[in-house]
Nucleic acid binder design. Structure first.
Lengths: 345, 345
DNA sequence: GGTTTTTATGTTAACGTTAACATTATAGTA
DNA sequence: TACTATAATGTTAACGTTAACATAAAAACC
């Protein structure tokens, strides 16, 4: 069983130095054309594969980007990863994928591992359970560029790419208000996560600007999952009839799905009895019994821009820290009350 | 701006040798407890992060697995990746994720890159457009363990983990036959992909065993996407009435969705006029106007088992080559004709 | 107390590559 | 032709770690 072929062996085969082999294979100048050809063909014939590990060690650069994702099965992330991969691939970088499973402990470990593997930069969407930023700061102390995407951390001097959560939440809430609803509930995300905070603020801002009072009883933290949406909606439905909301703004589509189930199980109609809107345009949104009005997040675009920004930081250490906002789009379906009587509001 | 801290600097700080630092930090025996403590605390204080690249070079092992996925947004893959990540994480390995985008050229490049990055093994689900196996064989020549998952390549001496495509296709076809349908069509996958071939064979086998003749006009290659299913179904609907199928077995759910749209747009009912079944239990399957009967693929399990098998190959070079089949499950909904009259067949 | 065993630490070389400098061959110039 | 500029190739050291062997110190034995 032959061992792996190295540049040294190719050099010996040709009776030349390793350096000439290296130069020939890396398209460097000052190599005779004939030599270069011989080297290339001999290397191929011998099955030589350059050792990127050795190269990384001497160059102090791995052409690898670390990626930390909280929950890869959320429909947003596969799309975002595709955008990231596209940008990275185009620039000749590979991706090390790690999964925090929404656990801050695991996220921290992943960051340490990535630093240890000497990635050139890190792309991260924070876990739900993160409470302090020490692990991010320790990465930054290593002068390792870090770019947040979707779920951001502000004020620690890192770039961030996300959608305009505040504006989007405000816009979709305002849309409900236009329908004439006055008692509007919000199923909120965890306040520890930037998008949770931004969306609740957008909701409140829309209510304020339209002269509607905010009833704290109608704001319930439900988290990002269907079960939380279901539970929270049940609580709302247990309020006395006159306090119950006419419409609901859910922090994301899964939470909205849960809430929709709760509404239907209580024998109420959507949107006639209670209107509801989501956030994220999950693939299931348009297939619900009453198609869900929601916000479409350009996940691919977010991923791509985040990767591009990270690459810029990697290749130019004076690249300015930026907070990039990608515009989202409201997708009007029926659950808000539009079309239900045959015409759009 | 301080440079990165190395073991050498920690050693100098303490006035001891690098080797003692290395031993202390790696929990090796024969280090005085006091020395070990001092090393660990000093390393932490100085912000030392071990360099895995250097370690990989000397150990000739990277604790990294290469992953090649054809289309990360297919709902199967995020789940499978989660399983892979789980197994890899548990064993202390990281994942380099590459995306072939169903393109064999790009897949080949990804494999070369992974070999160059000295991954310890490769997990791959082949691209649709792959025609020859040279790139896989070149990986195997490097003694790099490779395990196929979901879409397999047989006969080249690599392990493979997939669901029982043949049996599952046979089972779901037989289910349609039990309903009494005799003219059954198949929208097939590309025959270049193992699962495409296995499913068509399962379909034919079920027809055979139940004494039904196979009409080649009713077998159309539609590929894995919605558009192909739609187009193919239109072709079937252009056949003379007496030749049109009573039921359709689609190669996967997206193809089935496309076909369902074509059926409905032609004013036909599902399943009364044409019954249909899919394959993969896409998240949308139960939300269709007529919920789709399909095969549930345990994607997480497939990913996890594939990763485990690869790890076994990595850690024991005599590990036997295996073809592992994960059992799938038929999910009965309404599109096959069950429940449509209020009772299950 | 001296010899052997065990434990703790140090030294050297190696992993496979490239940068930087050194040398040799070739071409160009006067 | 001799001298210089340029192109092609070679040599050495370095990247940060660990294995393998070497040595020194401490403990155990008779």
């Amino acid at each position: 069983m032959r061992k792996r072929i190295t540049a040294k062996q190719v050099a010996e085969e040709l009776g030349i130095s390793i350096m000439t082999v290296s130069r020939a294979l890396n398209n460097r100048p000052n190599v005779d054309d004939k030599t270069r050809e011989k080297v290339i063909s001999t290397a191929r014939r011998m099955g030589y594969v350059p050792d990127h590990i050795a190269k990384s060690l001497v160059l102090q650069k791995t052409f690898t980007i670390g990626l930390v994702v909280p929950e890869i099965t959320h429909s947003f992330f596969p799309e975002a990863i595709r955008g990231i991969e596209e940008a990275a691939y185009g620039a000749g970088y590979q991706l090390i994928l790690t999964h925090s499973a929404e656990d801050s402990e695991r996220e921290n470990k992943a960051l340490q591992t990535l630093a240890s593997k000497r990635v050139d930069g890190i792309l991260i969407s924070t876990a739900e359970s993160v409470t302090d930023y020490e692990s991010y700061e320790s990465i930054m102390r290593l002068k390792l560029p870090i770019v947040f995407f979707d779920r951001c951390v502000y004020g620690i001097g890192a770039s961030c790419v996300s959608i305009d959560d505040f504006e989007s939440a405000k816009k979709i809430t305002a849309h409900l208000i236009q329908h004439g609803y006055k008692k509007i509930a919000h199923l909120s995300g965890p306040s520890s996560v930037s998008i949770g905070r931004a969306r609740i603020e957008g909701f409140k801002n829309a209510m304020d600007e339209n002269g509607l009072s905010i009833n704290d009883e109608l704001i319930i933290e439900s988290g990002f999952h269907e079960a939380g949406g279901y539970e929270s909606m049940l609580k709302l439905l247990q309020l006395p009839k006159e306090k119950q909301p006419q419409a609901v703004v859910a922090v994301n589509d899964p939470a909205a799905f849960g809430a929709m189930n709760a509404i239907l199980e209580n024998g109420l109609r959507i949107p006639e009895d209670i209107a509801i809107v989501g956030f994220s345009d999950d693939i299931r949104a348009e297939l619900m019994p009453t198609p869900l009005t929601t916000i479409r997040q350009p996940a691919y675009e977010v991923g791509k821009r985040a990767a591009q920004k990270l690459l810029a930081h990697i290749e130019n250490k004076d690249e300015i820290i930026d907070e990039i906002i990608i515009k989202s789009e409201i997708v009007i379906r029926e659950s808000c009350g539009c079309y239900s009587d045959g015409k759009k509001i």
